[in-house]
Design a protein around this nucleic acid. Structure first.
Length: 462
RNA sequence: GGCGCGGUGGCAGAGUGGUUAUGCAGCGGACUGCAACUCCGUGUACGCCGGUUCGAUUCCGACCCGCGCCUCCA
């Protein structure tokens, strides 16, 4: 039995998909006007792990993650750059896909784009107007009438009257109520636009997700996820639009990832305290970044710091050390172990990856014990367990040597290092330990750590 | 102000009404030419104050502190 925390009900609930054995999931992806930062990585990795675990558990998962490729920020950035908006968005989408791939994030099954669904968006707005939930304003914009939806605020637990009282007043807007939000924005002459019954314009921010999720997954689906700052207003507005347009309940379970923080503050575009994925990957192996993200629960806040990433690297190193020099048995040949069960127990409880990670370390310890005792077969079987459980978290899929020796731009090539190791081996054979240690120190200065064993010496970049 | 989340050992980070999280760092031992890796062992942890209970870090209440959303942000 799986339990998932549902933002809508504010509690963990038993998870039962609408259709037995099949999970329909929609996650709000990126607005592509800049490179992805670590906060985006958190969401990407969190829902990647969720998808992997659901599949591991036997569900047929249909995972949709959208791309918002038209909005104010995109247009502004494109204008600053002096380029067509689609050139900007194409570039950022490519970059995003690169970042994802490096972090081991599997592609969603569908990746719909707002600009590819203008028809569906217009149709949905049309229905909302027809049913009295939206209206065309004098300035050509179309707004959602928040007061027409009694459930408004049910996700973010906000009261409409508080929102109205605190709403920002923009004199250019022609809203009936301050809390109303745009479904369609009239485009000024010369700006990117699509034709509509209300004149040329473009979609408001939230409507694309309602239109695309409904199109890809149906009126009602199982899981809707996204970053913490999407809860309000984005997701609240999606619910309003979708439930008013279709007359059916929208997503059943709402999942939100926790924020990444830097120096006790949320990492965000507006604060400017963000680190892009590619910046971080210049300094740390991608799997270490992933390990860092997965090592805390997806809903908790996480503090980004160099120290924390370094520690994650050490911890992951321990796991790979257990695998070093061991050829894992075929996973199929290793029946379910207590580790598999403990792992599943942790993951069944709202995807407790931190608990699952402890199991990985227990398996690593077991491998090391078998190796100490010369139990090769058992070691290989345990190694298979480590790799197969790691796969569910998107970890431990590299060859250990590849992990240890990944070229991080050091001055020494693998061949240089091997030559020095050979020289040291010769010195040791001649019992010239001063020379042997000199070589080892020289390598250590350049970030190369040697590990001696009965089978010989291996090296890694530390 | 409204709504919500959290305060766990040196650090990171799970969890539980009474029994070992786990990792990093530290310390002792084994292994090693010496290290590294690994193994074995080791540490007065649960913000504060009340309450419920045979027993609370775990439940309830108050308080203190931190954070998030309420505006574009994953």
């Amino acid at each position: 039995m799986m339990r998932i925390y549902n933002t809508l009900t504010q509690r963990k609930e038993e998870f039962h998909p609408l259709e037995s054995g099949r999970v329909r999931m929609y996650v709000c992806g990126m607005t592509v006007y800049d490179y992805c930062h670590l906060g985006h990585a958190r969401v990407l990795v969190a829902f990647d792990v969720i998808t992997r675990y659901l599949r591991h558990r036997g569900y047929d998962v249909h995972y949709v993650r959208n791309i918002t490729d038209i909005d104010d920020k995109i247009l502004r950035r494109a204008e600053e750059n002096g380029e067509p908006f689609s050139e900007l968005t194409d570039r950022m989408i490519r970059a995003m896909h690169e970042d994802e791939a490096r972090l081991g994030v599997l592609s969603p099954d569908e990746e719909p784009r707002a600009t590819g669904h203008i028809e569906e968006i217009v149709a949905m707005i049309h229905r909302l107007i027809a049913s009295g939930h939206a209206y065309e304003a004098d300035n050509g914009d179309v707004y959602f009438a928040v007061e027409s939806f009694p459930d408004y605020g049910k996700l973010s637990k906000k009261k409409l009257e508080d929102l109205v009282a605190g709403a920002r007043v923009d004199v250019r807007e022609a809203k009936r109520s301050p809390a109303d939000f745009a479904l369609w924005k009239a485009a000024p002459e010369g700006e990117v636009s699509w034709p509509s019954p209300w004149g040329d314009g473009r979609p408001g921010w939230h409507i694309e997700c309602s239109a695309m999720s409904t199109k890809c997954l149906g009126d009602t689906f199982d899981i809707h996820g996204g970053g913490p700052d999407l809860l309000f207003p984005h997701h609240e507005n999606e619910i309003a639009q979708s439930e008013c347009a279709t007359g059916h309940p929208f997503a059943r379970t709402w999942m939100h990832a926790g924020a990444i923080r830097v120096d006790k503050e949320k990492m965000s575009k507006s604060l400017g305290n963000f680190f892009t994925i590619r910046e971080i990957l210049e300094k740390h192996p991608a799997e270490v970044v992933r390990y860092f993200l997965v090592s805390s629960h997806y809903r908790s806040q996480v503090d980004y710091s160099e120290d924390n990433l370094v520690e994650a690297g050490r911890s992951l190193t321990r796991l790979y050390h257990a695998l070093r020099g061991v050829t894992p048995a075929k996973s199929d040949s290793v029946p379910e172990t207590g580790h598999d069960r403990r792992f599943a127990e942790a993951m069944d409880d709202d995807f407790n990856t931190a608990g699952a990670m402890a199991v990985l370390h227990a398996v690593a310890n077991e491998i090391n014990q078998h190796r100490r005792d010369g139990e090769d077969l058992e070691a290989r079987q345990s190694a298979a367990v480590l790799v197969r459980l790691g796969a569910v978290l998107g970890l431990m899929q590299q060859d250990p040597e590849a992990f240890f020796q990944a070229d991080t731009g050091g001055e020494l090539s693998a061949a240089d290092i091997e030559a020095m190791i050979q020289a040291r081996a010769d010195a040791r054979k001649a019992r010239d330990f001063a020379e042997a240690d000199r070589i080892r120190d020289e390598l250590a200065d350049k970030g190369i750590i040697l590990d001696d064993s009965r089978e010989g010496t291996t090296w890694r970049r530390g």
